[in-house]
Design a protein around this nucleic acid. Structure first.
Lengths: 187, 187, 187, 187
DNA sequence: GATGAATGAGGATTCATTCAT
DNA sequence: AATGAATGAATCCTCATTCAT
């Protein structure tokens, strides 16, 4: 019951921030959407920034965990891992496009402070780089610079989501995983 | 002499916004950086938002023009065009990383109003899609969905720039053009 | 308790604006006078202009209502009606000279927008003209141009209030009603 | 030639301030209307306020002088004097309604400083009161309180001008002198 | 825990005035 | 004398955060 209110607030925040952007979102709008009082938000979050951080923390953690789980499965090739990851990600976004909007858009944050979010935003490419790197070492993938490829891949993911969300053509997301895999398959 | 002051302001704005982000940038900081008075900015721009718009307008126009020029050269294959475009873009960013930072980061703007910026942000992927699409029709490229590929490519460009700028590893940008071409090369 | 704060703000605003004039009045002074924070004013009024509007709206409405009530009493002659109105008005001003000062002074407003205030400023002369006009038709008063006479009467009222308030000779207001009636009594 | 520029500026100022009001009038608009540069205004006036002051000073001086001249003519009764004064005033306003607008409207000024304007605004009623008072002493007029009557008369003048100017019914001004004399004529 | 009125620091913008040309 | 770009003090308004109820 208690934890539930926190969820309600986060959901409301995701919606409003997706529509308006972090800086244009007023705490009172989040409260309105969540059908609670502004003050109540501060019983669960220390600040507006923390709300955004929590959103990022959760979503990125989910994805990092998912990726970690895939790595633990020795049966899978690097290609499989990336494929599964992409499919999961795009399918999640399709289920909650608001979230997708925020995840690709909020690259600008309250200065300095929120190292937190910046951190998450780095971890995923890093993890992707790791996967690519180990695949490369095992001869599964021919890539020269895993960091670069991971950065490109991560950007491509964002680009596709952004496009799909902006045009509300969520069907783009269905083909997206397959499409992006071509990027890793080289002669 | 007159037009010069506008340039000075824009340069200062690019620097400060790159460091601090649009919303965190105070007009007075731009003025300080440009070594002028705040009021002077308003002799050249109607608002803070207009400053950002002008930056986007100029940079995107440059790139669109460059791409258009490449299209006019019948000697070039699609691959050449994209390659040249990427090389130019990454080299520009390397020369002015602050600009790169802004161009990839400012996806959130003063609400509704700035259709302007949103417009530019779409035009480039659209143009890329066009190039890919016509190449596809001429049998030069095997891609299924030019829109999707263009979105991925555009995102990948942003991702690479973002990574390079964030880690200040500008050497990443040297290999980037070559790397991203893999988006177009399939078995 | 809630509505009370709005009253406190209005009272403070009347005082400060009377002393300083609308344009010279800073929102922070109103807040200081009301012993609240600036932000609080904005919980009750949308803008500085709206504060002034509310003052005008209330005071003019009071007077229009009073005049309307007098018109509904068939026992009264036109002279009685005007007399009562003037007595009430002058007595009100005597009780709150600050208000008097504002009511006669604020003829210049934030451009265009405040049709509201302009409206009130017209309604009272119009109403006076009506009373005069109907009195004329009933042979109670000999006046040629009710509009003109009403404008003069309205101006005379303002002139007397202005003089009394400026010189702080509020006793002028005691004789004022009687004096102005001479204006309507013609051979 | 030199003095001429000052006149041009004053005319432009009267026009713009009549349309926009003192506080809403920008110095640059006056300059535009006068077809000169802003800086030039400051070669003739020390400040925006001084421009308004000069307007008031001139117009009120004109009227005070006119009234003084009428007083010097022993042939005239008080009624004649007032009548002539009113006719002149209303006719002047009819010729330059912009001026009329300013003269009745600008009761709020840059605080404290401009005692000047406040002074003029008092002098005219004072002078009127003098005329009435001496007429009273000579048994020409039956009025009890010359100050009060003068204030009412002055207010009535303003009221009529205001109405005429606001509705652009300048014909009201033709009858106005005759009408206002009723203030002096009692049973 | 929930509420929402009160708070006040913060910042974009305006515009009278200056002064180098 | 005329110019008009540059100046920066001044102020309205916003909104995240607090806290008494």
């Amino acid at each position: 019951m208690n934890g539930e209110k926190k969820e309600i607030i986060l959901e409301a925040a995701v919606e409003v921030m997706a529509e308006e952007g972090y800086y244009n979102t007023k705490m009172s709008w989040i409260a309105d959407r969540a059908e609670i009082a502004v003050g109540t938000i501060y019983n669960y979050f220390g600040s507006k920034e923390e709300v955004l951080e929590e959103i990022f923390a959760r979503e990125f953690k989910k994805r990092l965990d998912f990726l970690a789980a895939l790595e633990d499965d020795p049966e899978l090739t690097a290609r499989d891992r990336i494929k599964r990851f992409l499919e999961k990600h795009f399918s999640d976004i399709k289920n909650n496009p608001s979230l997708g909007k925020i995840l690709v858009r909020e690259k600008e944050f309250p200065r300095k402070k929120s190292e937190a979010i910046g951190g998450y935003l780095n971890q995923l490419p890093n993890k992707l780089a790791e996967v690519l790197s180990s695949a490369h070492q095992q001869g599964q993938l021919k890539i020269d610079n895993p960091d670069l490829t991971a950065a490109a891949l991560f950007g491509a993911i964002q680009g596709v989501v952004e496009r799909a969300v902006k045009l509300k053509e969520y069907s783009l997301l269905d083909e997206a995983a397959e499409e992006l895999l071509f990027f890793l398959e080289r002669k």
